[in-house]
Design a binder for these strands. Structure first.
Lengths: 113, 113
DNA sequence: CAGCATCCTCGCGGATACTG
DNA sequence: CAGTATCCGCGAGGATGCTG
């Protein structure tokens, strides 16, 4: 692991795009299904408001982490998918997923003592 | 990579302990110096208020990510360090660090087009 | 279906002053 | 040195209604 120094730390700039109560969850769902439509995402994350969902999708799009494709003919249809650059987040997302599990188990075990 | 499913996702529970504007930065500093005293942390992160620093340290402690040791004799002296469990976060922290750099470079390159 | 427009709440984080 | 104790502002997120 190369040297690192916390000053002028980029972790905050690294986290900024994925912080926000739902962003990582959105990314994971899109990743998991490869591509998702707007209302599919709403159903997948029932507790999110569409106002917030829209806002987060816009931000993720502006940071080039996801791509938004519109198929206009007939009924509106919009598909979201991870951008090429967004895919670089995959390993981190999955590590977080794994760590979350471990952390959860750890806290549960701690509780019983 | 083992199978994962975003429902009942643990990423949020994984992120919860490390979200908060400064938490990751605090963890990185403690990690980098192995052990740090309260005012050393304040100096290391000048923009943080001690109210907020205290609050975050307490939360990180409650989640067993850091350890707080008091050396009471004479002048008060408190040392913070990563707990054993907190060390499991190291790889993720450093990956975030690396990804932050890459993302930063990516956005900069994007800007020039 | 995929949003936009408003209005509102609430709690994180900040500022300042004080203490064992 | 390592914190409490108050007070406060602001902005992310929520609720509801409407639209091309």
């Amino acid at each position: 692991m190369e040297n690192y120094h916390p000053d002028e730390c980029l972790v905050n700039t690294a986290l900024a795009p994925i912080i926000g109560k739902w962003k990582v969850l959105i990314l994971l769902h899109i990743d998991y299904h490869t591509t998702l439509r707007f209302n599919e995402l709403r159903r997948a994350i029932p507790d999110i408001t569409q106002r917030v969902l829209t806002a987060h999708l816009r931000e993720l799009e502006q940071e080039h982490l996801i791509e938004r494709r519109v198929f206009g003919q007939g009924r509106p249809k919009v598909e979201y998918s991870l951008s090429e650059h967004g895919q670089t987040l995959q390993p981190i997302l999955r590590q977080l997923h794994a760590w979350g599990k471990a952390h959860h188990a750890y806290l549960a075990a701690q509780q019983q003592k």
